[in-house]
Design a protein around this nucleic acid. Structure first.
Length: 937
DNA sequence: TACTTCACG
DNA sequence: GACGTACGTGAAGTAG
């Protein structure tokens, strides 16, 4: 704060003051000072609020020119390297506190206060360093902390202030606590130790004795040198025996004041907060009372209505809804003009069917500002009872509506204008619908994708539906679709809804899409997710739309033929199984099958299901029984295979062929997975069988258009390569550089056998371990996979860690990262949330830990193939090639290619995919070309 | 709707 | 030392 003339007059000579705040100490006090509370999205914020209040009070009370808040960063410091047990017994931070750590740093920045932390050092060391630097420059330093470890810093020009007791701590208070002056605090602590921090000290010596000894001998070294003079025999012996331990303790306790600090002192000037940033922070965390307090003081108060526009986020929260029905071209033009003016418009379409590929356009809604939205009915039919009042028409006739062609003509420029951002919620759907009436849309943003990128699968955030987000972020209950159209059998289509109901429902969707956009877009920067959104997920939206629209040709004759074959096999197996059982039963019922196997036949049950405790009839159990020579379970396995193939694939896929296109159009999910992978549904084309001969035949039904071929290009071992890269595993990298059989090489290293003529059993084991590594290996899991005793599995794992020791560090570091932040990041910065990582239940915690280890690998691979997909269309166009990307199956891309271009396209696709990321190991892509998907592998 | 099973990476 | 697990998906079927 600038000095007023009055202040200056009586204190012209006082030195500048610097306040150094021990942020980590504040956090725990804040956390315990308030009961648990959450903001609307479920994020706990009690510590954030407590911290914010404490920070505001400090800023208001202190009289200083410079201030900074210093935090601990991570557990590992140079002290844990000196003494691994240091602070080793400290419990993990409470689960609901962990996600608040980053928010608390946001709070500091929101108040425009410098915020410092440094890997490898505790906050105390940074404080000591800054205090020394500031003192050297003649500043008066006040360290704000209740931590006794900081008492050693007290001297001329450096004071301590205890915010807990609200009192200064000077040399007298230090003496009271340690029995010596500040300059000998370290010596006393070195002798007395500290059980809570695992500082060993010297046995039998507490603070009192230590102070007495130091006072008598002067300092620790002198005391240790002259320990022989001490009269008490036990004490003399301990001081001699544990001298090195005392020295270690001194090194642990003594603060480093020579840290290479990340921020210069000059950045600590006291500055007023940026009003927008502060308001955004307070609004987002729901700190209304704080907002009310600072309005008009730290930040300007919005003067009703107009001034709210000064802050987009606040406006998104507060705006009243005002929705308009658009039934004539003149009105439509005014909305289009408003959209041009705003530069951002939310768009939502209403259709007469759920399917993106089939639904016909019924109406369009637009929002140009929070609360300001309209609905343009286009294909509503006669009948709705509420229509008369609004449009003055005859209820027996269709309501007054702009002809579709006119509306398309009016919207065309807007939707393609590069200066107007079109925002949708799951806009992929709308892009399909609008494409069918001849409307292209660009550029776009998608609030569903934004929500996914920002909040992913955080605690309880399984879904990114518009209704959920409106509730979570604005505490607003959206009109439910079923309240407008009903549900189940009596559901009506949207074109029969009254215009009034349609307006309320449809305009609200566009309105809240726009509001969410205002909320989310600034968070990309704050959460450091700009690159992931802009370079990975947003470009996927139009790309996936094109892939879904393209679909893949499926030959129904092949499928029907297979269905017949499978039906015959199923029938035969069923008869045989029933005969063996002595009676008919439903083989598809795990319950009935279990009774036949374990009760009637008296076979030994393998394991029980985890949820219900029923005896499992899973494939692994049946395989064991079959291996013991029992025929019935062997037949059941066959029966299951054919039933699965028939019901899930051959029968179902025929129904999924779009009669208009003769092709199957899946929907790709961009926001469903915890790792950044895509998903595929309706139908799922990412799990078409391949592992068995019979199943693989289903891929013969996936065919190219006449004159075309299918090209499959898949990454070889991409996840294992990523492990080698991110974990920096030297031996694994060398193996990949050699380019040979990676599993055989692994086996060779682990079992000390030459790669030539490797025993297939050893290779199989090495392969299982390589997979296990990707999954966050456990002896139990490996033992189960390989059907070997757990001890043997553990021995394999130990052998693996011995050959590839870096993997252990990676696993530990990843778990620590997950515990600290609640998420881990992929190579490209994507956050993968790790709920349960601090769970008390060891099973849940173990699951979360393995998931955390797997996420950067699986997610990194997902990022890489997305990069490749995004680069492919441009590369094809540039090369003048006519291929279309049809499908993605995690590490594989499938294209439909003009026959004559097959070789060129394969080479180009391979080049793009292999160059999609530069790692310390080569990326390798294999390609195959054939008339069917079966042949392209 | 919950659970089990199984198809894929 | 106990906990009771390999990571990530979606779909079909049974059972309640």
């Amino acid at each position: 704060m600038p000095d007023t003339p009055e202040d200056v007059s009586d204190d012209v000579t006082r030195p500048d003051r610097l306040f150094l705040v021990d942020g980590s100490g504040y956090i725990f006090r804040a956390y315990h000072s308030l009961p648990p509370m959450t903001r609307p999205d479920g994020t706990p914020v009690n510590a954030v609020l407590g911290f914010t209040n404490m920070l505001m009070k400090l800023l208001a009370d202190m009289d200083a020119e410079h201030v900074a808040v210093i935090f601990d960063k991570g557990r590992r410091t140079f002290r844990t390297d000196l003494h691994p047990d240091y602070k080793g017994h400290r419990p993990e931070a409470p689960e609901d506190l962990v996600p608040q750590f980053p928010l608390i740093r946001d709070a500091v920045r929101a108040f425009n206060v410098a915020c410092v932390e440094l890997e490898g050092f505790e906050a105390d060391d940074l404080i000591a360093t800054y205090a020394r630097q500031a003192r050297d420059r003649g500043l008066a330093v006040t360290v704000v902390s209740s931590d006794k470890d900081l008492m050693q810093l007290v001297r001329d020009g450096v004071a301590l202030f205890d915010p807990m007791k609200n009192r200064p701590i000077g040399p007298d208070e230090v003496h009271e606590k340690f029995g010596v002056g500040p300059d000998h605090v370290v010596d006393v602590q070195a002798l007395a130790g500290d059980s809570s921090d695992n500082v060993p000290g010297v046995p039998g010596i507490g603070v009192k004795t230590a102070a007495q000894l130091i006072t008598e001998y002067g300092d620790l070294e002198t005391l240790l040198d002259r320990a022989g003079e001490i009269k008490q025999p036990k004490r003399r012996q301990n001081l001699t025996e544990y001298a090195d331990q005392a020295r270690l303790s001194r090194d642990l306790v003594r603060l480093r004041d020579d840290v290479d600090v990340p921020e210069p002192l000059s950045g600590f000037d006291v500055r007023p907060p940026e009003p927008e940033a502060l308001r955004a922070f307070l609004v987002e965390n729901g700190f209304k009372s704080v907002l009310a307090r600072v309005e008009g003081d730290l930040i300007p108060k919005p003067e009703d209505g107009s001034a709210a526009a000064a802050d987009p986020v606040a406006e998104a929260v507060q705006a009243e809804a005002d929705y308009a029905l658009v039934q004539d071209v003149e009105t439509l033009r005014r909305w289009v003009a408003a959209a041009h003016e705003a530069g951002v418009v939310a768009v939502d379409t209403e259709t007469d069917a759920l399917s993106a590929m089939r639904g016909g356009l019924v109406g369009i809604s637009l929002a140009v500002a929070p609360g300001q939205a309209c609905y343009i009915p286009l294909a509503h039919v006669a009948g709705g009872t509420g229509q008369l009042a609004l449009d003055g028409g005859d209820p027996a006739e269709a309501p007054r509506q702009i002809p579709l062609a006119d509306c398309v003509a009016e919207l065309k420029d807007l939707l393609l204008n590069p200066g107007v951002l079109k925002v949708g919620h799951n806009i992929k759907y709308d892009l399909h619908v609008l494409a069918r009436v001849g409307l292209e849309v660009s550029p776009i943003d998608d609030t569903m994708v934004l929500s996914y990128v920002l909040d992913g699968t955080r605690l309880g955030q399984g879904t990114h539906g518009l209704d959920d987000l409106a509730k979570r972020h604005f505490d607003h209950a959206m009109i439910a679709f079923k309240d407008v159209c009903g549900s189940g059998k009596s559901q009506i289509t949207f074109d029969t809804v009254t215009l009034k109901a349609a307006l309320d429902y449809a305009a609200e969707d566009a309105d809240y899409t726009l509001r969410l956009h205002r909320l989310f877009k600034p968070r990309l920067v704050e959460d450091r997710m700009v690159a992931v959104y802009e370079t990975l997920d947003r470009p996927m939206v139009p790309l996936l739309t094109a892939m879904e629209r393209a679909g893949i040709r499926v030959d129904p004759a092949v499928l029907k033929d297979l269905s017949k074959t499978f039906a015959a096999r199923i029938g035969d197996l069923e008869d045989e199984i029933h005969r063996m059982a002595g009676h008919a039963f439903n083989i598809g019922s795990p319950k009935q099958l279990g009774e036949v196997l374990f009760d009637e036949m008296g076979l030994q049950a393998g394991r029980k299901s985890s949820k219900t405790g029923a005896k499992s009839t899973g494939a692994d159990v049946l395989e064991d029984l079959a291996a013991q020579g029992h025929d019935l379970p062997a037949r059941v396995l066959d029966w299951r295979q054919f039933s699965k193939l028939k019901s899930t694939y051959t029968d179902a896929l025929v129904e999924d062929i779009n009669p208009d296109t003769g092709r199957v159009h899946t929907t790709f999910g961009l926001t469903g997975t915890s790792t950044g992978r895509l998903s595929s549904n309706d139908p799922n084309l990412q799990n078409i069988p391949i592992r068995t001969e019979e199943g693989r035949r289903i891929r013969e039904a996936f065919v190219a258009e006449p004159g075309h071929v299918l090209l499959s290009a898949d990454y070889s071992q991409i996840e294992l390569r990523l492990v080698a890269h991110v974990a920096g595993i030297k031996a694994l990298k060398e193996a990949f550089d050699k380019g040979a059989d990676i599993h055989a090489i692994t086996a060779s290293r682990m079992f000390g056998q030459p790669v030539e003529g490797m025993d297939p059993m050893l290779r199989r084991r090495a392969k299982a371990i390589n997979f296990g590594i990707i999954y966050g290996i456990s002896a139990f899991g490996l033992a189960r996979q390989l059907s070997i005793p757990r001890g043997e599995a553990q021995a394999f794992i130990d052998a693996y860690f011995k050959e590839f020791p870096e993997i252990l560090d990676y696993m530990e570091a990843t778990k620590a990262e997950a515990r600290q932040h609640g998420f881990v990041r992929t190579l490209f910065g994507r956050k993968c949330w790790t709920p349960g990582i601090t769970d008390k239940n060891p099973t849940a915690k173990g699951l979360a830990e393995r998931a955390a280890i797997n996420a950067p690998i699986q997610g990194g691979a997902a990022d890489i193939i997305k990069r490749a997909m995004i680069r492919v269309p441009g590369a094809l166009t540039e090369a003048g090639l006519g291929a279309r990307l049809l499908l993605q199956v995690h590490d594989e891309l499938i294209f439909e290619v003009p026959e004559a271009e097959a070789d060129d396209t394969a080479a180009l696709v391979r080049r793009v995919m292999e160059g999609a990321a530069t790692l310390s190991v080569p990326l390798v892509v294999d390609t195959g070309v054939a008339a069917t998907w079966a042949g392209a592998h």
